[in-house]
Amino acid sequence: MVISSFLLAACERVIQVDIKDQPLRFVVEGVLTDDSTCRVRLSRTSNFYDTINLVGVTGAKITIAEDGKTPVVLNASNNRGEYRAAFTGRPGRTYQLRIEYTDATMTHVFTASSTMPQKVTLDSLYVSERVFLGKTRMMAAIRFKDPPAPGNAYRYVQRVDGELETTVFVTKDDLINGRTVVDELLIFNDDYTLKNATS
């Protein structure tokens, strides 16, 4: 027979960790849509203990071209590394992005190519309820049919009461290719409770 008494406690504490500074790298965020958004943001990474601040890179030459046609120049729209052009993407076409930037030591050239996929329409969008860890949670659910060709990827951006919810929802079609699927946007973040969701 054993009778025991325990005192348990967990504690959380901010600590200083040794993180070696790494050479800063460039970050490219490009958005091209079929409803006249064409925007590139060029910035740099910062060290772990630096103040959070978007380190925009200005003075870069950025162009976009559709299927090898004459490139269109994106002009700086502010001094925080954002560049824009009056340019619209079309599904099925391939776009080449080219960035040239000269700093004190050398010229950096970045290129990327991407094909705009065909539009996938939503069959339905609704709110479903699930019991999760003993609590009933509401979730946005999306029903759609994946196109027959493989290689599609999806991303959902969710707003809760107009506020951007930070969970990243991405999925590929390699296990669902060509099928009708329902994706439920389960939020693990306790800061948001889903009451009325729009996606």
Binding site: V2, L7, A9, R13, T51, I52
Partner: peptide, 18 residues
């Protein structure tokens, strides 16, 4: 404006009598 590292630890001084 800052990022930080947070350490979680369990079980400081656990006395017991059996």
């Amino acid at each position: 404006t800052k990022t930080e590292a947070v350490k979680t630890s369990l079980f400081r001084f656990v006395p017991s009598i059996s």
